[in-house]
Amino acid sequence: MAAIFPPAANLAAKLVLLSLAGLVLAGIGWWWLFPRTDYARHVDWTVDQPVPFSHQHHVGGLGIDCRFCHTTVEVAGNAGLPPTYTCMTCHSQIWTNAALLAPVRRSLAENVPIRWRRVTDLPDYVYFNHAIHVAKGVGCESCHGQVADMPLMRKARSMTMGFCLDCHRDPAPRLRPPEAIFDTQWHRTPDTPSPAALMAHYRVGGRNLTDCSICHR
């Protein structure tokens, strides 16, 4: 009547226990890390639109200012998108028969809006306001990335709550001079006013920006 288990059982038992412990730790690790990966946040995912509009060409190449199309960025909560009428100001003159622009022409003809798809999106319960950010020295590039060299719009930032909180806790280093707000190529140079000077200029800091009532209601 030999022993119940073979000698190899020792190693097997240790392996099983270690793998169990490893599995649990891996699970916790995945649950903690995966949501903050770029993959999970769809960062750098290009969203296909009804019309492949190229910012690189229009902003980088032609130098059109953001506010030409996104008209309400300085006065309203949403930045707004251009009505088809704005596109057709030029495209009624040039590329008038391009197959690529057929949806634009059809939209104006049939008075049916173009269904653009959102790229940098926040959940519905977050009430982001463009006007106050632009007024307080936050540039478009801070959240939308280098739009000037994006052939097709892609999501540049993770847009997690942590991303917003990092800036709301310490806005100074992320501010930029008023003239550089809409310049996506801007970066800080030695003669750029110091963060403290910018904070004073924009008079930021009178309010606790990490209150929940700032973004949620």
Binding site: I28, W31, W32, P35, R36, T160, M161, G162
Partner: peptide
Amino acid sequence: PYPNTMDL
């Protein structure tokens, strides 16, 4: 209390 993307 796991460290989450909401810093909460």
